[in-house]
């Protein structure tokens, strides 16, 4: 089953809607609470990143009997040094974003910690595609 969401680029107040919707769906499907929590945290983090760093984008979520696959595609600035970006505490979030409590530099590490698979394709100047995979069973 597939779901697609368009994430707006500059409205922070709407950021997180896609993650909330997926979370509701997973609850209706009766997915274990621990898996839902991991999905909620990792997808929310990635969705927020999309709003803060890239000008929004498209999220595709695929559910199959064994996995939850979340693909977040943006056409933002790309990540120049992925290795550095994966380190905890590293952030390029704007002052505005930080004031709202976002971009504390937990981002990519936090996604990795709360998922069963993370893959990032990024090209500077073209955009980033983040793929998050979670196992349905805890």
């Amino acid at each position: 089953m597939n779901f697609e969401y368009t994430v707006s680029g500059d409205d922070y107040s709407l950021a997180g809607r896609a993650s909330s919707d997926i979370k509701k769906k997973l609850k209706q499907l009766g997915i274990p609470a621990t898996v839902i929590k991991k999905t909620a945290i990792s997808m929310y983090e990635a969705e927020i990143n999309m709003v803060i760093h890239a000008d929004g984008g498209i999220i595709k979520v695929t559910l199959d009997p064994r996995h939850i696959r979340i693909i977040l595609k943006d056409t933002g600035p790309g990540i120049p040094d992925l290795e550095l970006a994966m380190q905890e505490g590293w952030s390029t979030a704007s002052e505005e974003a930080r004031e709202l409590g976002f971009g504390a530099g937990m981002g990519l590490m936090n996604i990795q910690r709360n998922s069963d698979g993370l893959h990032i394709d990024t090209v500077v100047g073209e955009g980033t595609t983040v793929t998050i995979v979670l196992n349905m069973e805890d």
């Binding site: 979370k23 839902i36 909620a40 929310y44 983090e45 936090n110 709360n114």
Partner: peptide
């Protein structure tokens, strides 16, 4: 509660 669940 939504925000707690998201880790926000």
């Amino acid at each position: 509660l939504e925000n707690l669940e998201n880790g926000h």
